[in-house]
Each structure stands twice: as structure tokens, then as C-alpha cells.
Design a protein around this nucleic acid. Sequence first.
DNA 1: ACCATGGCTTGGAACGATCCAGAGTTCCAC
DNA 2: GTGGAACTCTGGATCGTTCCAAGCCATGGT
Lengths: 345, 345
Amino acid sequence: MAVPRSGGHISAAPPTLADVAELAGVSRQTVSNAVNNPDLLRADTLARVQDAIDKLGYQPNRAARSLRTRASHLIGLRMPALQEGTANAMMDRFVHTFVEAAAETGYHVLLFYGDPADPLDGYDELLRSTAVDAFVVTDTHLGGQQTTWLQSRRARFVSFGRPWTQPDAKHPWVDVDLAYGAEIATEHLIERGHSKIAWIGWHKDSLLGEERRSGWIHAMHTHGLSTTGLASRTEDSISSGKAAADAILDETEPTALVCASDTLAMGVLHSLFERRLRLGEDIAVVGFDDSQVAQTVPPGITSVRPPLEEAARELVKALEELLATPSYAAPGVMLKPVLTVRGSS
Amino acid sequence: MAVPRSGGHISAAPPTLADVAELAGVSRQTVSNAVNNPDLLRADTLARVQDAIDKLGYQPNRAARSLRTRASHLIGLRMPALQEGTANAMMDRFVHTFVEAAAETGYHVLLFYGDPADPLDGYDELLRSTAVDAFVVTDTHLGGQQTTWLQSRRARFVSFGRPWTQPDAKHPWVDVDLAYGAEIATEHLIERGHSKIAWIGWHKDSLLGEERRSGWIHAMHTHGLSTTGLASRTEDSISSGKAAADAILDETEPTALVCASDTLAMGVLHSLFERRLRLGEDIAVVGFDDSQVAQTVPPGITSVRPPLEEAARELVKALEELLATPSYAAPGVMLKPVLTVRGSS
DNA sequence: ACCATGGCTTGGAACGATCCAGAGTTCCAC
DNA sequence: GTGGAACTCTGGATCGTTCCAAGCCATGGT
């Protein structure tokens, strides 16, 4: 003998629509309406159904609902590649707010893994199995491969990061204006009385790097300061940050440094440590990303803080509209970072 | 007229089992078997079906499959609370490997959000809607609320963190032996010639804190060293770490400090910075967690590194068995951390 | 009294997969 | 040549929900 469906005190199998309907003395469809279109029911019927729902602890089965409505209420997010030693804890803050904001509109986040060597790995399977309603793409600066491909597959998605390579892309995106970030960082140092302000940035082929660099140049020139001999380009790692700092400190003796990332700023700190120079007193340093490290290292590193929470919320908003109206084409949203001033400047 | 189902070049609607069956000239069930039990088919039939599957790019619809098999192949993970300024980037590394390991066994991770004030928030909804097959619980040290509740709801789960309050709990768990961690940290300092080694830890009501502390005490006593006046207890924050360091440096003048967390270690660094003492030369410091910060601060903080990757893989393994055999009761797994030695000691 | 109106409720069908029981084939032993 | 086991394959039912078209019942205008 099978165990009776809804009889148990500790529900072995969760209650279904039919169970609720029976208890409330109405049909399945009426219960469904009570859940999805309450205003279709007469007040007293609705109350009766609600009682039954509460009594049984009913909750619609997601799989069944997804099957029928062709919507999973899941947003796919590919796990960003993890680099040991690099301050990408930034993503943590972003993901956190994103999950929170998504929850508020009834969406959950499906984290998936893809081979770091293949930027498209993982997307196809989820798309074909209709496991997610949409994606959030976060690595647009690596070239538009993912977005181009998703577009060709008619997948729904939003991106955190502007469509660098296709300025006419139609998908919603949110990004942070980090040229502006470099500008306010540099101006902050100028206000503090510095005039020999060096730049430690990334290689020329990095779109993000060139953008940030342009902010520094703009601020310097606006204030009539020269930039010659003050810029250096290198990898985004601590050791190369240190090497770059060593070189520039020996050659040009700047009084302040703006770094394209907190990782590079940490490299600078290593150089200072070795030279027994004191951060914030002997020399000023400003970083990017406002990572854990910048926040905690004594005496604190002044850093350009991207509004990740706001970005996450904007993306969820765009997603919501995109899923409501498939033809939705939002203008991109560009957010301004703020400078968090700490002891290093 | 409706668009023909599988006719399009750019598939509007994904192909279904029936489409594949038709193309291959077999029944739906045979296609299903080709996917799930290939050895039931004759070799030539299997090849024909496979061809059709490849040609159409067929992928089973997850919702339909979930509905029928009552398994979503999703693992629920509640977003851990985010504390600004605290070095919990540790979780990032854990989540990353977990997602990766889960993917290898065909599972994806469903990230969800729960009100930080209510440790149970979020679980119930997912459970009742049968959205996930199991949970990973990560905050067992906050008291066994979540695990007790999940157990009473007959939910499947594994925990990262031993069942502190119920030593007889039956669910699989994985944890890191951080008493041992404190021990090797202390012994490392003793080897380096230190004998006045202070402890900066958490309040007495923290189970994790007491455990780590016991490792320090054990190592000290084993080597005939006194611990009196060398221990301090405080909050897990940078400012209280600094205050504790200030007090203990003034009173007892230790030559080395073991901190219960990297956050506290950062507090110590602030104290040293103010006193113009040089980390690793004037005084040695060891932290816990091997966070980003410990890795990057010059000259690097020696830190007890929990094997998060291994833990994640063990948890996935346990999950797999748990989902295969519902009555599965694994013994807990206790992993040993390693000490990452850097310039601070 | 009648029919149209509109609000509320209903049973049957469908979403796309798997489970189940049975039908058809093949093959070997007697 | 036949019976039976083993192997393949098939059609119908089912998972729990929502869509659809139709049914019921008051109400109100003619």
C-alpha cells in the first residue's frame, strides 16, 4: 500500500494544488488563481483558499510551474575566474547585492561553472535545457565573445560592463565610469598639494586600462601639470606593481602615485616597505576597486570605489523589464564611482 | 498558422524528445533511453538516435525532467552574510571550488538570499517548492538552528562546519581542525626562537574561538612555556584587534602574536604602524584564514590556511552519496590546515 | 419572461520528460 | 519446429502546474 498523499503529519510529499483544492472545496484552477490572480476571486472564496494554503503549507512546485509557463525564475551567473592573490573580492560584494536584489523580485541565482579557457563554456547547456530565464555577463572587457554569441542565440541577458567592442549593441548594460574615477583620484592628490603624480597602469591592449589612464591624463593636463615620464605600464600583479614602482621612484621621484588597481597599489606598498618609506607620510598612493585590502591595510589606502551595490540593483531592474517585455532595449547605464579617502593620501 | 516546431534554422523553441524521436524514426521512450540508459539500445539504433540528437542540438528540458523525477539537480547555498571590512573573502574561494566540483557531477548551485537576522529565512520556500535537492549549510558555529530545523523537515543537507551543539548529528559534515592550526602556528613561532607568544582571540562564548585558543595553549604548555598574562579576548574587528594589541604590547611585551583571525592580525598591524614597529623584524605575527589581505600586505602575513578546495570537494562527494542513498550517514570529515609562512614571522 | 452581460468557477488538455507494463524480435536449446 | 528466455522497442499514463473554453449563476434591461 502506498502512503496516502496528504495524510501524514510530517508531510512526506509536499502538498499539491489538488490537495488544497479538496480541503477548500474548490477546483484546482481556483486555487491557482488564488495564488496568481487573487483579484479574480470573490473575497470569501479567496479567504477560504488562503486558509487551506496556510494550513497545508502549500507552495507551488517550481518544476511544474516552469514546465507550463516556460519560465524558471532563475538567472544564470557564471562563476568569475578566481585569481589567487588578486583583489577580486570586489565580485563578492557585487554578487551579494545582486542575489539580494534578485530575491526581491522573485528570482534566484543559478551559479554555474565554465572552463576559464573557453568564455562560452556552460552557457549553451543551460540555454538549451531552458534552465534559466536570462544571464548576467560580467566579463565584457575580455572582448564581446559572450554577448555576441548570446545575441545570436537569441538569449536574454544583461551585462555588467559596457559593450566595448560593439558600441551599437542592443542589450541592457550597466558600467562604472572609471575614467572619471581616475580623474577624481588625481584631482584629490592635486588638492592635497601634489604635482608630480605618477600613473601605474596596465598594458596598452587593455581597454579598461586605457580608459582609467585617460582620466589621469585629463586631470593632469586640466591643471597644467606635465605627465611625461610619469606613466608606466605593466601586468596586473603585485610583483609587477612593485617593479614598476621601484623603477618610477628611482627615475622620477614623484610624490604621489595613482594605480590602476588595488593589486598594483599593493605592489607599490611592497616597494615602500623595502625602502622603509611610510605610506601616506613620505608618499601618497591611490588605488582602484576599494577592495578588502585597501580598506584594512594600515593606514588605509585611498581608493576609487565602484558603486557595486547600485550596479547590481540597476541590473536586476533591467532584467525585470527585459523579461517582462522581450523586445525591451534599454539604454546603457553609466554609474559614477566615489573616492574613499584613507590614510594613504 | 503556427510556426512548425523544429523546422526553423534558428530554433525559436528548443527541440523536444518527440522531435528527436520523429527524426530518428523511433519512439519517445527510446530517445529517453538513449540519453539515460544507452546500454539498453542496440548499437545501430543508439547511433541513429545520437545523430538526431546532435543534429537538433537536443538537450532535455530541465523543468520537465525535474517534475517527473522529483530531482532538480540543484544544490541550495544561502549567501553568507557579508561583513564590510572583514576578511571573509575566504568564502569566495570555497564557493568557487564548490561550484566547480558540483558541476563535475552534474549539479548546479542555487544561490539564495536570506534575511541575516533570521538564520532559517529562505530555506523553507525552496524546500516546499522542491526547488533544490539538497542544501549546503555553512554557518554551523552560530548554533545548530539551521541543521536542527532542516533535520526536522527531513531535508537533505551537508554542512561545512561540524555540528558543534549536537555531537550525535547524523548528517554528513566537513570541517577544518583549527585547534591544530593554532598549534602549528604557535610551534612555528617557537621554532623561530620566540617564547613570549601572545594570543589575541575572541570572546569566551565563541566556540570557534575557544577551539583555536586551545591549540595555542597546548603548544605553549607542551614546550614548557607560560601563557599567563599573554591571552586577550575581544571582538572580531580591526579596531578591537588594534586595541587588544596596544594593551598587550604595553603590558607584557611579547615578541610574537598569534591572532584568531586575519582581521585581528590587521588590527595588530595598525598598532604596529602607529608605533613604527616593523612587521616581521621587530615583532612576529601569525593570522588565520590566509585571506587576500594576509597574502598581499607587505611583507606578507604568515597565516593558517584552511584547505577550502579540499573541503568543497569532500562536501560534493558526500552530497553525491547522500542523494544516491537517502539513508546515507557519513562520518564527519576533519581536515588539517597548513601554515603558509610569509615575511611576518 | 427572456436574453445578454459579466463575475466566478469548472473540467479537460497541455507543457516535456520518465515510469511502467506489455508487445515484438531474436536466438538458442530441445 | 516450438517454447522460453533475453533483448529491444513501444504506447499510454503520470508528475503538478497553468491555459483554455465553456458552464453556472445572479443581475438587469427590454
